[in-house]
Amino acid sequence: MNYTIKTEGLHCGHCDASVESALLNIAGVTDADADHETNTVTVECADEVTTDQLTAAVEGAGDSFKVVSIQAA
């Protein structure tokens, strides 16, 4: 399953790396690519990974990170 996550609060490469690392710690996530310039994150994961898990990982990676929307890609 592939998702595109629209975010708020990503301001630099360090922010991107924090979000990517948090997402890759979820069992079943095989790839995560955050882009602070567009405030989007693309995620590749197994079908059993839920959008709630993705949201929790992004928002847990930093105090200012927020998920605006998640769409299947």
Rank of each mutant, 00 (worst) to 15 (best):
T51I: 08
L23M: 08
L24M: 12
I26H: 01
T51G: 02
G28Y: 03
T42S: 11
V58E: 11
A72W: 02
E44V: 12
C45T: 15
N2G: 01
A56D: 06
A27K: 11
T51V: 14
I5F: 09
T51A: 13
T55V: 12
H14C: 03
S21D: 15
T55I: 08
M1G: 11
L10M: 13
S21A: 15
A32I: 10
A61W: 07
A57T: 10
D31T: 06
T30S: 15
A72L: 04
F65S: 08
G9L: 12
A57S: 12
E20K: 07
A73I: 05
L54G: 10
A27E: 12
D35V: 10
T4W: 06
E37K: 14
A46I: 01
V43H: 02
E59G: 07
D35I: 04
T51E: 15
T55M: 08
D52H: 02
L10G: 04
L24F: 00
E48P: 01
V58R: 09
Q71I: 15
V19Q: 03
T4D: 14
D35G: 04
S64R: 14
E48H: 12
H11Q: 11
V49G: 08
N2P: 00
E8S: 14
G62C: 07
K6G: 01
T7K: 08
T30A: 10
V58D: 06
